[in-house]
Amino acid sequence: MIKKFKDFAFKGNMIDLAIGVIIGGAFGKVITSIVNDLIMPLIGLILGKVDFRTLFISLNGEHYDTLDAAKAANAPTLNYGNLLSNFLDFLIIAFVIFMVLEQILRFRKKEEPKPASVKECPECLSEVPIKATRCKYCTSHLEVKEA
């Protein structure tokens, strides 16, 4: 069982996947920092000095001046400011992944179509080899096509 686990865990694809997950996690942290520390403060400044991380709705019907005050009172809150920040994180990460995949697909070598190796019998509509002179199913005569 240990040998099977070693074979599984140390295959090339598994190592590549692990590296991708680690880099993806670090990339996600960078994007989160860009959104929280650069983009959202700029949007908040444009919209009248709003700090999105502190936007919330108290669900118990009482008014709290800050999110910290609501948390200190153990009040249930709907933190829609955090939702906006996380949604912007998602959009940026999705856009970057889309752009990277577009570039990878652009440079990927396109496969050339293979030449046909079979043709269709006009009588019985069966597939027969391209160089065949008779259909192997109905024995009708076929035109020979050079490949």
Rank of each mutant, 00 (worst) to 15 (best):
M1E: 05
M1W: 13
K3P: 01
K3D: 09
F5I: 15
F5Y: 12
K6Q: 12
F8W: 10
F8D: 00
A9C: 03
G12N: 11
G12H: 08
M14E: 06
M14I: 08
M14P: 01
I15Y: 01
L17A: 07
A18C: 08
I19L: 14
I19E: 02
G20M: 07
G20H: 04
V21L: 15
G24Q: 02
G25F: 05
A26Q: 10
F27H: 09
G28D: 15
I31R: 12
I34R: 05
I34Q: 12
N36E: 15
N36A: 14
D37A: 12
D37F: 07
M40N: 00
L45D: 05
K49W: 00
K49R: 15
D51I: 12
D51G: 06
F52V: 06
R53F: 15
R53W: 11
T54H: 07
I57P: 04
S58H: 03
N60H: 04
N60W: 03
H63D: 09
Y64H: 05
Y64S: 03
T66Y: 03
T66K: 10
L67C: 04
A69S: 14
A70R: 04
A72D: 05
A73L: 01
A73P: 00
N74H: 14
A75V: 02
T77K: 00
L78D: 00
N79G: 01
Y80T: 02
N82M: 14
N82H: 10
L84D: 02
N86I: 08
N86T: 11
L88V: 10
D89I: 03
F90C: 14
F90M: 12
L91K: 14
L91F: 12
F95N: 11
L101T: 12
Q103C: 14
I104M: 07
R106N: 13
F107W: 06
F107M: 06
R108L: 09
K110W: 07
K110M: 09
K110G: 04
E112D: 06
P113A: 11
K114E: 13
K114S: 13
P115H: 09
P115I: 07
P115F: 08
A116T: 13
S117Y: 14
K119D: 04
E120G: 06
E123T: 11
E123L: 03
E127Q: 10
P129Y: 10
I130L: 11
I130H: 02
I130A: 00
K131P: 02
K131G: 07
A132R: 02
A132Y: 02
A132T: 06
R134A: 13
C138F: 06
C138Q: 04
H141N: 06
H141V: 08
H141L: 05
E143L: 05
K145L: 12
K145I: 11
E146G: 07
